[in-house]
Nucleic acid binder design. Structure first.
Length: 844
RNA sequence: GCCGGGGUGGCGGAAUGGUAGACGCAGGCGACUUAAAAUCGCCCGAGCACUCUCGUGCGGGUUCGAGUCCCGCCCUCGGCACCA
């Protein structure tokens, strides 16, 4: 019988399911008998488009790890679920006027079917969906905890309002004035919204990054997003007004050089400031225009207007003007900045409006440049190496050396106090949508808020006649019937329900905890199970979640930690980002795309089969519009899940971006066929050591596969297995012992074929249940090594000698080689470098 | 502009400072076959005056020896971007 994946894969997937092979016990006394390993995938949003080959890349990586760890004696938590709330299902619901739950279920069923075909060893009894009331009951419960702790609050905030979607969007969902998903325009509005006080955790979110085994890039992105800067908060009186203003400066070294002040055009203090100025109305109108112009646009020319006011600067005891400037941001620092010649924006702004500058920092050892700085021709900003001038007691000092002294000085003089600022803002947590978790809060007549008691959870989504906003622009939940909207509290008070829902990020903030105890109706997770399983040992997903999901989840986790309901400060100990899978696309000169089967290659160029029109080919992100999406169903139908799994990992390093090449699948498919034929050979009953060369190769393979897999270097693990199979194919006899062990090595990667061959070779137990074989280190190295002989660093010959041969002997033997004699040409080497078992270099 | 990846054959990629190109794809030649497919074996960076020379984005450096380490650049992908 030839290798037919379609038959054996279905067979073993059924067997694993019936046998509950990958289901874990919930009984702690049982669990505690083994060490734990928690390997987690970022769960998918089940879109209508189904899976593409990018999804299973990470899932395959975690599955191989899960299977290896299981064989090594760990209890392995390896679950899968659905990030099921979200806008696309809601939009489909509006379009088709079907309940989003139905659309979501349809999509989940399809995703589950596709994922299951790959034979992953998930414990499906732990499947969760964030849109399931049994799940979102606990999302709401966590919200109540946040509310209790004062971390959830309502505020009038400027928000990004998307008219097309009739909802607000978080800052990070908006780019260049458009919703990042759809490109719909977004405008600013002031609205009353739920906010989560993530800023209260800024410092801890920053500090605790240090202990994490995460990609440096992701850590850096989170650091930047939190954006901590330490500086000074200066206070100065406004001239002619009974008003002090404060300015924040992280680059305060040049504080003597500050010559003007700017305020953000949308600063709440601005109207007070200009009150009494003759052209106050003009200033406010111009400021308003600046704010509008700023919306959604990126880099801008400096723009501003004089407020007519001055501050009495205590530092140099002069009055310096206050301007409105478009580059000042109301929500960062104090929204007011003291400006000097030593900031690019300040410098540009002053040049444009002819404001006075007083340079006070020059480069060391560059007199010409220093002269140009003093002449205000160039802006110099090096606060570390620059030398201070006109700086009172600090004149002549290197700026970077006296930062601390300056802090002390400004404090002593009463100019300023130390202050830390963060870029991180509070998290806008309400959406005017239907398909999300209802916020479990009631608005009372007197305007106060009443959170629902835990007993009232889950607060389920009400029935509505349509999944769109009301005529007067209220959220879809306002369409619910009065008996849902109106609530009578136990104490007789009447209130109305909150009609905003939570954003999609909510449910994904804690799903890794629910997997541990998914059926618990009393608690979101049993604390003892949590203690056993947490933290997640390996979390694999796309880098697109580097900031938002991972920051929000860390925030919620820390809140839960403070509530005493989780035992670790951080949820995800090790994080790994798989690289995106790209695909070739084909485009003619008019920009029209073609499907891969519509084009053919002629030598190095490509053209459309039907018309012969030349097309260019490029490697791009997979998308429907580029006609280059590869569907895993098609790959599996042709080559099987095992080949699919192998190719996903063989393509290249897991963390790298790489193009899908369908004929690359062919290669791993051939490898599996060779493996199949190998097992069909007449196998020798002799021990493995009866075929010493292959026996060694087996142990080498075992060692490398084990080590490389644990290091997530799957591609090189696979190539070692290919080397083994090539060698085994060439071997005279193939001991059954060797074949069986090899199947165990391959099983985490290609479990179906290995189960099948394992069974055919007479084994009773599932290969998925067997223990990982142990390699013999002594067999992993060769007895003989090839030593390269170089003359003057150039390879001239090689020789095969016993491993560990003494340096002197190697040297002597090398000198005897005819090739060496030829290249030495009678000369005696000046120096001889011998690296045992590696190389000899003779230097003349 | 700042931060972080990445530049190695026709392609995906491999190489604790020690034979650059493992493994695979594509290609070539051969065996088997009536033939094709499949399979198996061999070849496969470039040049050439063939015991050789050049070759890992570019220019320097350290070293007996550099894809790998150091300095200075270029290109490319991703993230952030008036954050004081």
């Amino acid at each position: 019988m030839t290798y037919d994946p379609s038959v054996i894969e279905a067979k073993w997937q059924n067997r694993w399911e019936q046998d509950k092979t990958f289901e874990l016990p919930q009984d702690l006394s049982k669990l505690r008998q083994k060490p734990k390993y928690y390997v987690l995938d970022m769960f998918p949003y089940p879109s209508g488009a189904g899976l593409h080959v990018g999804h299973p890349e990470g899932y395959t990586a975690t599955d191989v790890m899960a299977r290896l760890k299981r064989a090594q004696g760990f209890n392995v938590m390896h679950p899968m679920g659905w990030d099921a709330f979200g806008l696309p299902a809601e939009r489909a619901a509006v379009r088709e006027n079907i309940h989003p739950a139905i659309i979501t279920k349809r999509n989940i069923d399809n995703f589950r079917r596709q994922i299951k075909r790959l034979g992953f060893s998930y414990d499906w009894s732990r499947e969760v969906s964030t849109a399931d009331p049994d799940y979102y009951k606990w999302t709401q419960w966590i919200f109540l905890k946040l509310y209790e702790k004062g971390l959830a609050y309502l505020a009038e905030v400027p928000v990004n309002w998307c008219p097309a979607l009739c909802t607000v969007l978080a800052n990070e969902e908006v780019k260049d004035g458009k919703y990042v998903e759809t490109g719909d325009p977004v405008e600013q509005r002031i609205m009353r919204q739920w906010m989560l006080k993530i800023t209260a955790y800024a410092e801890r979110l920053l500090q605790d990054l240090d202990g994490l085994d995460w990609p440096e890039g992701v850590i850096e992105m989170q650091r930047n997003w939190i954006g901590k800067s330490e500086g000074l908060l200066f206070t100065a009186k406004v001239k002619d007004l009974d008003l002090n203003i404060q300015t924040f400066s992280a680059h305060f070294e040049t504080f003597h050089a500050d010559t003007y002040v700017v305020i953000a055009p949308d600063h709440p203090l601005l109207p007070t400031l200009v009150n009494g100025i003759s052209n106050a109305a003009e200033i406010l109108a111009y400021s308003k225009k600046m704010v509008e112009k700023r919306e959604g646009s990126t880099e801008q020319e400096p723009d501003g207007i004089f407020t007519g006011r001055y501050v009495e600067d205590p530092v140099n005891q002069v009055d310096i003007p206050i301007w409105v400037a478009n580059f000042a941001i109301a929500t960062y620092g104090t929204g007011i900045i003291k400006c000097s010649a030593h900031d690019d924006r300040d410098f540009k702004f002053a040049k444009k409006y002819g404001l006075r500058l007083q340079p006070g920092l020059v480069p060391p050892n560059e007199p010409e440049l220093a002269a140009r700085v003093r002449a205000q021709e160039v802006c110099y900003t090096d606060m570390i190496n620059g030398i201070l001038e006109h700086a009172g007691p600090f004149s002549g000092k290197r700026s970077g050396d006296c930062r601390h002294e300056i802090i002390q000085y400004c404090q002593d003089k009463g100019f300023a106090v130390p202050k830390v600022s963060y870029k991180l803002r509070d998290w806008l947590f309400s959406r005017q949508r239907y398909w999300g978790e209802p916020i479990p809060v009631v608005h009372l007549k007197d305007g106060s808020l009443q959170p629902l008691p835990e007993s009232a959870l889950p607060l389920e989504l009400p029935k509505v006649d349509a999944y769109k906003p009301t005529e007067d622009g209220q959220p879809p939940l306002a369409r619910a019937s009065e008996d849902w909207l109106e609530v009578k509290l136990p104490n007789g008070q009447i209130g109305r329900r909150e009609t905003n829902t939570m954003p999609q990020w909510g449910g994904s903030c804690w799903y890794y905890l629910r997997y541990l105890d998914p059926k618990n109706s009393n608690q979101f997770c049993d604390p003892e199970l949590e203690k056993y399983w947490m933290p997640v040992d390996l979390y694999v997903g796309g880098v697109e979640h580097a900031v938002l999901h991972l920051l929000y989840a860390r925030f919620w986790h820390k809140v839960l930690y403070d509530c005493g309901v989780v035992s670790t400060k951080e949820p995800f100990q090790k994080l790994f980002n798989q690289g995106m899978i790209l695909a070739h696309s084909y485009q003619d000169s008019a920009g029209k795309y073609y499907y891969p089967d519509e084009v053919e290659s002629k030598g190095s160029s490509w053209s459309v089969k039907a018309t012969g029109e030349p097309v260019k080919t490029q490697v791009e992100k997979m998308s429907k519009s580029r006609y280059n999406v590869v569907n895993p169903d098609d790959v599996i139908a042709k080559y099987g899940a095992d080949s699919m799994r192998l190719y996903e990992l063989f393509m290249g390093p897991l963390d790298q971006v790489k193009p899908w090449q369908t004929n690359g699948v062919e290669g791993v498919y051939r490898f599996l066929q060779r493996t199949w034929r190998l097992a069909k050979r007449e196998l020798s009953e002799q021990p493995g050591s009866s075929e010493p060369g292959l026996w060694r190769q087996l142990h080498k393979t075992l060692k490398q596969v084990q080590e490389h897999t644990l290091e997530l270097r799957y591609n090189t693990a696979i190539s070692q297995m290919m080397i083994f199979v090539n060698e085994a194919t060439a071997a005279q006899t193939l001991p059954k012992e060797i074949m069986l062990t090899f199947l165990q090595v391959l099983a985490p990667y290609a479990p179906h074929i290995c189960e099948e061959l394992w069974e055919r070779l007479g084994q009773k137990e599932l290969i998925s249940k067997t223990s990982w074989p142990v390699f013999d280190p002594a067999l992993c190295t060769e007895d003989e090594v090839v030593i390269v002989i170089q003359v003057n660093g150039k390879r001239r010959d090689e020789m095969r000698v016993a491993r560990g041969l003494a340096k002197e002997v190697v040297e002597q033997q090398a000198l005897e080689l005819p090739q060496v004699k030829y290249f030495l040409n009678g000369a005696a080497p000046k120096k001889i470098i011998v690296v045992p078992d590696k190389i000899v270099n003779l230097v003349v």
